[in-house]
């Protein structure tokens, strides 16, 4: 039977607790992976590996966390802000993420805040539906 959102959230929470060495209460839907939960770049790969195992899905790395490839492209970033073209690309690549607040001030330094626990849950939910 298909998992509902709460079940997916529970499993994602376990993955994050194991991968980042967190306490149960630290993980909330709105917590950002880098700012609040202290994830570093290698942790993102660790999280991807663990999600693949837990949910039996395949996740190309740039699909869940596409920021790196965007930020290194001068067409998408200008003067530390995401260009219109970059924003279109971001929307296309992160349909699982709410970017409305970021859109008002697309400072690339704030892009990290887009990676929340809720975004990961949405992503997995979408992957499971598509499977």
């Amino acid at each position: 039977m298909a998992m509902n959102r709460d079940e997916i959230y529970g499993e994602v929470k376990e993955v994050l607790i194991d991968a980042l060495g967190l306490d149960d209460e630290e993980v909330t839907e709105s917590a950002t992976l880098m700012g609040d939960l202290g994830a570093e770049s290698i942790d993102f790969l660790d999280i991807v590996f663990r999600l693949e195992k837990s949910f039996g899905i395949k996740i190309p790395r740039e699909e869940l966390f596409p920021a790196e490839s965007l930020m290194n492209n001068p067409e998408y970033v200008s003067n530390g802000k995401l260009t219109d073209k970059g924003m279109t690309e971001l929307k296309a690549k992160m349909p699982h993420t709410d970017i409305s607040t970021f859109q008002e001030d697309p400072d690339v330094n704030k892009m990290a805040d887009l990676f929340t626990v809720a975004a990961v849950v949405n992503f997995v939910e979408g992957k499971l539906k598509a499977a």
């Binding site: 290698i42 790969l45 660790d46 991807v48 590996f49 693949e52 195992k53 790395r61």
Partner: peptide, 10 residues
């Protein structure tokens, strides 16, 4: 080896 990808392995 638990996982191996182009960028990393666990």
């Amino acid at each position: 080896i638990e996982s191996i990808a182009p960028e990393a392995a666990g």
